[in-house]
Design a protein around this nucleic acid. Structure first.
Lengths: 322, 322
DNA sequence: ATAATTTAGTTGACAAAATCAACTAAATAA
DNA sequence: TTATTTAGTTGATTTTGTCAACTAAATTAT
């Protein structure tokens, strides 16, 4: 157990060494786990290279030999022979290209597709077996962790988009703390606010919970890879008014339409509830958010100078008629 | 983007399919990333199997051929030849066993160790290259994610122990929310408390923050794989007394000595601060925690029946003279 | 338009990696 | 003492992968 007092940190060099050692340990373990070091895949008559070639044809629809060669970085002569074997076995068909007499598209025959399907099922079963002793939430954690790794390593197509984000509403145990945490972390990073701000957010949530009515109030939470990445809330107020609060996106999830998606949900809810007016309070520091507000029909109605969190700023009020 | 209203869930079957597809996607990406599909490791004259054998000898200290064969699942004849090659190249030495004339311990020569070191450096560099475009916190996330996967898949030696846990004290932005979250999640899971309990925890923290004095109060946070897994706090009270609060461990981190480690830190702090008495408030529901309290010299001094969080229970007070 | 060059893929010769079965010698069990 | 098992070796062979020389179509240069 490492004792790491606040402010102190082990040297970044030894930190890096530990990280690398951890990754290598993972690699060793995981490659064995996957059976990647066996030469015959799933005890079939096909080698790993065979299967990779088949998979490439299956996955890429129409490819030429060169396409496979470039994707898998294998010797053209070797590939040529593999393809001839597949052709002989009735797994693959060559369709000569009209525009290039040297090349041919490759497609799987029905038999090839069936083989591919069997392989896929075996692969799925292998993974299922790997997961079988895990609780559902542990499985979810593994899935999230792998997606996160792939995304961070900039896997092709791995960048998180709106399609990776899950939005839900309603409050479950753990949500309140998570909302507070995200505010604390983001505002520290972006504006240098200290822990007093997080404390303030906690108080606003405590206030909110005292009058929380699931029928009239709603909190939406957006998460990705199991991490909370954004939120928005609508709170009913007297005289058919409502307040928009806790609109926040993690910086790396801005610009993908998530803010708009959250705001749309909030506004739709306001219409359903037949609120006449929605208002929100912010500061001039949150400049970028302001443009989202105005884009969604909010108008600045007040701007009052104030000193909070050790910062001189203007508290602003935005309103929107529904 | 998936809309997942509270209470509704996509079928567990399609959920599983998505999880498996995600894992396979990770596997495909990661095997390429690692260059596992190349036959010669790091453009050296050694094959992947060669390197695995070398690594096994290096890592396991003293092994016999059978030990390697069983660990790597390779043909004994093949291994025999590989070992002879290594011996001829002066990488490995056989030390005949006195107690068994058939076998021999295998050790690396200085040259073999040097080769191993070079390989390790190349492997480290490969990983370093993989990480080079990442921010420090992203690197940490990858390390955490991989350790989590390994742990969840029950990798040998992957179960988290006290040595995987980092304890720090002091409050940073994000901590307050995290403390609240963990309380909300654990108490829901273990005792079925609803979100009102989380709200209550938030209020206790708000109260605490109003009088928080880093010199007299202290909060310790334990985390593992980047996740908060436990905590404890000492709060100064009038008359040289102190209150112990928020002593909580994630269930999967109990029984490894973490509770004791946290309690030790708390008690040591109390001695340093020269508090005369430490007390804590709990309920009879938290039975297991009680035994930790008594083990650390706390004595039950009060037990009052109460109805909170929709539960009939006894509020208990424990005290310890310092 | 023709020649030179490049590209896509094939083939032969080989080397390396891995497997299988038959074997030896030491250790253990009957 | 004999039979059986275990640890490791060796020979024969297959599978897998590499390299270089080749053909034919496509592209570029002259």
């Amino acid at each position: 157990m490492i004792q790491e007092p606040v402010g102190t940190q082990s040297s970044s060099k030894s930190q890096e060494a530990a990280l690398i050692a951890g990754i290598r340990q993972f690699n060793r373990y995981y490659t064995i786990q996957l059976g990647l070091l066996q030469q015959h895949v799933f005890d079939s008559e096909y080698s790993l290279t065979d299967v990779r070639v088949l998979y490439e044809i299956h996955f890429n629809g129409k490819t030429t030999a060169t396409g496979i060669r470039e994707a898998l970085l294998i010797d053209p002569g070797y590939l040529s022979r593999i393809l001839r074997k597949f052709e002989k076995q009735g797994l693959v068909i060559k369709h000569p290209l009209p525009e290039d007499g040297r090349s041919a598209y490759l497609t799987l025959t029905a038999r090839g597709q069936k083989l591919m399907q069997t392989m896929n099922e075996l692969s799925d079963n292998q993974i299922r077996q790997m997961l079988e002793n895990l609780a559902p939430e542990e499985r979810a954690k593994i899935g999230d962790a792998m997606r996160l790794v792939r995304y961070l390593l900039k896997a092709p197509g791995g960048a998180p988009g709106l399609e990776d984000v899950v939005i839900r509403h309603g409050l479950r145990p753990g949500d309140l703390g998570n909302i507070v945490r995200l505010h604390g972390e983001i505002y520290e990073k972006e504006y240098g606010y200290n822990i007093e701000f997080e404390q303030y957010v906690m108080e606003t949530i405590t206030d909110f919970m005292k009058t929380y009515d699931p029928a009239k109030d709603r909190v939406w939470l957006a998460s990705c890879f199991g991490e909370m990445v954004g939120m928005i809330a609508i709170i009913h107020r007297p005289n058919r008014k409502a307040q928009l609060r806790w609109f926040l996106l993690r910086p790396d999830f801005r610009g993908i339409g998530l803010g708009r998606a959250l705001m749309d949900k909030a506004m739709e809810f306001c219409r359903q509830q037949q609120f006449k007016e929605v208002y929100l309070l912010t500061t001039n520091q949150q400049g970028k958010a302001a443009s989202i507000y105005t884009k969604h029909g909010f108008v600045k109605t007040a701007s009052v100078p104030e000193t909070v969190w050790g910062q001189d700023l203007y508290e602003e009020r935005y309103e929107r008629k529904m």
